[in-house]
Amino acid sequence: MAEVIVFIIFAMVALIGGITILVAPDPVYSAIGLLAAMFSLAVMYVLLDAHLVAVIQVIIYAGAVMTLFLFVIMLIGVDTTDKYGIVAPAQRIMTTVVALGLFVAILLAGRSAWITGTNLFGTPDLNGTIENVADELFGTWTIVFLSTVLLLTIAALGTIALAYFGNEVEDEEATL
């Protein structure tokens, strides 16, 4: 029962956060809405006994990514408002169609679970989520995991290389 109450509260927070992202007049409010949505998702993970995923969600998304967003918004200037309206009406229709399609897909994929309340993926052994995740990452999916690590390292190095080399003609502010 307690789980249902917590779920309803945080599902509502996530929805309100999502709507805030779209309609807020100021980008800082959008960022805070996104933060609320991410935090609510972390609570959902806790409810599903995926503690490690929840904590990683908070550390990476709420702690690092969102701080960076807020930082950039403030650095660029909070007084500048976003003047871009929606100029292409076709985009609006296309977005609506895609969103509805995704919604229907989710409904179809999860219908049995929502009616019967059973877990589609079976009940995993939830004792100690770190150990389980580590077993999967370093046992079953080692190659995939290491490939991703390699990809991310290359991406990070590429970012540094792009930032440091190749803009010699830029003004000296870029090197600060």
Binding site: V55, V58, A64, T129
Partner: peptide, 21 residues
């Protein structure tokens, strides 16, 4: 918590919002 140490890092990473806001 079995993720106690990560919990500490997660919560302390939220402290920066107060200052930014």
């Amino acid at each position: 918590l079995n993720i106690g140490l990560l919990y500490v890092l997660a919560v302390s990473s939220l402290a920066v919002y107060a200052i930014t806001l």
